[in-house]
Write a protein that binds this DNA or RNA. Structure first.
Length: 875
RNA sequence: GCGGGCGUGGUGGAACUGGUAGACACACAGGACUUAAAAUCCUGAGGCCGUAUGGCCGUGCGGGUUCGAGCCCCGCCGCCCGCACCA
């Protein structure tokens, strides 16, 4: 057959064709009543910025492979797509371009939907949702009200992280290095009344249940554990020496994880915002000034690291729980945090470096209370605190105990001691996890359905009045929240007493929107937040795929939401995501011109001269310096546009490239050579199919000799089927790709040996192998595979065809090649029958030249035979 | 500081449960086809020595366990990530 007979595969023609065929046939629209086993695969939904980037391509290509594979395995697969559509960029666009956030957002969604559709993803678009749609956020308001009623919502005054540029509140986790995660502005402390979800009440369950999430990466589980931050300790009540503290303050509660070091205490310290500090400051201007100074202290890493431990000594003293004569001074200290534990500590300088630094600065006593096992009895602390295990010293009745036993002894005694009608100490588990503040002073978010009435306080909006819709006529010409500036929207009458009242003008953190969308997808048009029966059928999500940047917040919030929705009757499970996969980023080289300006890859011409790479500017011809490989970002201009790639090479090639080579959890580097390699493979798969089809279409060659090892060809096809299936199931797409290549190589060799016709046996083997090759490639390059499938004479759509079975019996070879080692070094190999008797293997081994040479006539000391695996001769 | 991960050819990476290290791909070199180029196909290749049969070395470094270690153990080095004044 000549070259001309095989046209090149043209994705520009075939990709839209198959996409319209799938759409017309509703191939990917699911039927809830389908009795087959259900499988839910979900990729983290995108923010509608207006453009799909290559990272999205990789994320959605992965999900699509999983979806198409499981569909081929005969499952009813839910694979939906939606838009995380609320958020600040829409308001920024409104400010900068004068376009309404809704208009901007929906235009972006339309553009991105078109781009996504180019990729040929097997999505059920009938379930599409956008969080900015009142149909969605109205249901979210319903959830809020149900949570409020169930006690999962609190309103409290709290110090908040205020972003002065965005004029909004940020969650602790949205503050990175003391700066707003979006604006980058230095965050200030401000006190506001805020709405909170009581996620901290769920801390224990959220922590313990991590153990059950065995489909999650260990790394993410660990990150969540650390974030929740459980620590076991004691709450100890210290008596304040009468007359030293302001009226009404008689006790100081302290949380400690080291009650064993109680006899090493030399001072007490409270946070600047501690009620006792505030009370004392009223009569002490100097203390008041110190507290102000603490508040002004930045929260940036630099500020924290350089800030010296400082304290202000108050007149207040407390009594040691085990010795009423022992009085300790109370400091207000800048390193004590108000929102961890009780905001008060006892300082034990010998056992804590911070306390030691503080003690040295203020000349406080340092008593060692734990000495290392092997230290002398006169063990003392100089400039390093001892935090390790050992033996208690200088601690009266605790002397000689281990710290752990000392802990128990202190707990026992203080639990039995009474102070102000309560035990003086109690065992207590403390969590680092704080409640989730959701109030945001923004327009483009879900309104909090609450009305503030002077008579009735905070009144929930009646359910029949939901959704509380965002007003459309808003302006962004001044800073702050447009809802607050709106002339009429916030003025309503109280649902309870009818008096004039005000709407809550804060909207919800956008993390709320993404905390339950996976559940909404199971019944996206339901009149309630979920249809519990549907949700029960589909959830948990079998495979969730997204970026590692959401390892903590989004996933933790979603876990909390699922629990809260369970308790309010919307769901019947606690854990939303059975399988989780966090994929790596897409990176690209960076380029700079002589002036140090970043350059787009398309403006750079690369040259490779015997391994030496150089670059010049495409237009000016001036030299360009090649910089480091970085995550693709607009600021560094090291981006490629998926649309351009799809136009040039087609979606299949892009999909194939982002899934080849690099393990999915690792970063992948985008290179021209890589995408061209993928393009070549696509053409090769098409050519192999066409060549195989030509042989199969040709008249059968008369039964003559069989020129290829047909058994080996079929075996390789089955082996590849097994390996590719295994690799997809374990999300190792690069391994799947390698196995597809191997099969392609084998098929290619067979075709070139066969020429243009084959005998019956050869035809059968070739037909089987090429069909399997196309089927295995299907989830990765669906349009191309569909085209090949048709070329092979198949009538049905590949997308509706079952995954091939693996005949394990075919994979067992009759003879095996055993490597033969001498003293652990490979010296040769023998071919024996599978399961051959030891004696045969021994004989074959000993007759090897290499073995005989090494033995020099001696008998081997030992002969280790691992059946069907390896032989090792020990001399 | 605390916690976790990773380290394999020129490059991305494979390697079952401790059993032939380097699959597969990229880049490279040589060859075929072509007026030429592109495309395609074939061949080669971890390093060192050797014409070759072959030998020695080799998975960050140093030790150890084992018939056998990329994989297990101990001690280092380097890089990456998460958390970080959390009592």
């Amino acid at each position: 057959m000549s070259e001309q007979d095989i046209e090149r595969y043209n994705p520009r023609e075939m990709e839209p064709h198959w996409q319209s065929v799938w759409a017309e046939r509703d191939t990917f629209v699911i039927d809830n009543n389908d009795p087959r086993e259900k499988y839910y695969v979900l990729e983290m939904f995108p923010y509608p910025s207006g453009n799909i980037h290559v990272g999205h391509v990789r994320n959605y290509a992965m999900g699509d492979v999983v979806a198409r594979y499981h569909r081929a395995r005969g499952k009813n697969v839910l694979h939906p797509m939606g838009w995380d559509a609320f958020g600040l960029p829409a308001e920024n666009a409104a400010k900068q371009k004068g376009v309404h956030p809704a208009e901007w957002t929906y235009a972006n969604i339309a553009a991105m939907r078109d781009q996504l559709k180019l990729m040929g993803l097997s999505l059920d678009w009938t379930r599409e949702l956008a969080t900015c749609d009142p149909d969605y956020y109205g249901q979210q308001q319903k959830l809020f009200l149900d949570f409020l009623e169930a006690g999962f919502v609190r309103r409290k005054k709290s110090k908040v992280n205020w972003d002065p540029v965005d004029e909004t509140v940020l969650a602790n986790e949205q503050v990175i290095d003391g700066r707003g995660w979006r604006s980058g502005a230095e965050v200030e402390q401000k006190e506001l009344t805020q709405w909170f979800f009581t996620i901290s009440d769920f801390a224990e369950d959220l922590l313990d249940s991590i153990d059950t999430l065995d489909g999650w990466p260990d790394k993410v589980r660990l990150m969540q554990r650390n974030w929740i931050g459980r620590s076991e300790g004691m709450l100890i009540r210290w008596e304040i020496v009468e007359g030293t503290a302001p009226e009404g303050h008689t006790a100081l509660d302290v949380f400690t994880t080291r009650p064993d070091t109680l006899f090493g205490a030399s001072f007490m310290a409270v946070a600047a915002d501690h009620p006792l500090a505030r009370a004392a400051a009223k009569a002490d201007p100097e203390l008041s000034a110190f507290i102000d100074k603490c508040r002004r202290m930045g929260t940036s890493v630099a500020a924290l690291e350089t800030a010296e431990k400082e304290g202000y000594k108050t007149a207040i003293h407390v009594k040691h729980p085990f010795d009423p004569e022992w009085e300790l001074p109370l400091y207000v200290a800048n390193f004590v945090l108000m929102d961890y534990g009780t905001g008060a500590i006892f300082g034990c300088p010998s056992g804590d470096q911070r306390d030691l630094d503080f003690a040295r600065k203020y000349d406080l006593p340092v008593t060692a209370v734990v000495k290392p096992e092997d230290a002398d009895d006169d063990f003392t602390i100089t400039d390093t605190a001892y935090v390790g295990d050992g033996v208690m010293i200088n601690s009266q009745f605790l002397d000689g105990l281990s710290p752990k036993d000392a802990f128990d002894e202190v707990a026992r005694r203080l639990e039995n001691a009474q102070f102000e009608g309560k035990p003086q100490g109690e065992r207590r588990v403390n969590y680092r996890l704080r409640d989730w503040g959701i109030s945001r002073q923004r327009y483009w978010g879900c309104p909090i359905p609450i009305i503030h009435c002077d008579n009735c306080g905070t009144v929930p909006v009646s359910e029949t009045d939901l959704p509380v819709k965002l007003p459309e006529d808003v302006t962004f010409d001044r800073p702050g929240n447009p809802l607050d500036h709106h002339p009429t929207w916030k003025h309503v009458s109280c649902p309870s007493c009818g008096a004039d009242a005000l709407r809550e003008t804060d909207t919800m953190d956008t993390f709320v929107d993404s905390s339950w969308y996976f559940a909404r997808f199971t019944a996206p048009k339901a009149a309630s937040p979920t249809e519990p029966a549907m949700a029960t059928d589909w959830l948990p999500v079998d495979q969730y795929i997204g970026g590692i940047e959401h390892a903590i917040l989004h996933l933790l919030y979603s876990r909390f939401f699922t629990r809260a929705m369970h308790r309010t009757g919307h769901l019947k499970l606690d854990e939303p995501f059975k399988g989780l996969f966090t994929q790596g980023m897409v990176t690209h080289e960076t380029y700079k011109d002589k002036a140090g300006e970043w350059l787009f890859p398309e403006d750079v011409v690369l040259a490779n001269d015997a391994g030496k790479r150089s670059a010049t500017h495409a237009k000016t011809g001036e030299p360009v310096s090649i910089g480091s490989i970085e995550k693709m970002s607009k600021s560094k201009r090291n981006v490629v546009a998926p649309e351009d790639i799809v136009k040039t090479y087609g979606a299949d090639t892009a999909r194939w490239f982002v899934l080849s080579d690099s393990p999915p959890e690792r970063d992948v580097q985008w290179t021209d050579a890589g995408i061209e390699g993928a393009w070549r493979f696509a053409q090769r798969l098409w050519r192999l199919t066409a060549e195989a089809a030509a042989i199969l279409d040709a008249p059968q060659r008369d039964a003559g000799e069989t020129r290829i090892d047909t058994a080996a060809l079929v075996r390789e096809a089955h082996r590849a089927t097994r390996e590719v299936g295994k690799a997809i199931e374990t999300i190792r797409f690069n391994v799947a790709v390698a196995n597809i290549y191997e099969l392609a190589n084998t098929v290619g060799k067979a075709i070139s040996t066969l020429g243009d016709a084959a005998n019956g046996e050869e035809r059968q083997a070739l037909s089987s192998a090429i069909r399997r090759l196309v089927m295995l490639a299907g989830p990765f390059v669906p349009h191309l595979a569909e085209t090949c499938w048709r070329r092979l004479g198949e009538e049905a759509l590949l997308a509706e065809t079952k995954w091939p079975e693996v005949d394990e019996a075919l994979l067992v070879e009759d003879t095996v090649t055993l490597p033969v080692q001498v003293n652990g070094k490979r010296r040769g190999e023998i071919a024996v029958a599978r399961g051959a008797p030891q004696a045969d293997i021994e004989a074959a081994t000993l007759s090897l030249d290499a073995v005989q040479r090494m033995l020099e006539g001696r008998a081997p000391k030992k002969l280790i035979i691992v059946p069907d695996r390896i032989v090792n001769v020990v001399i």
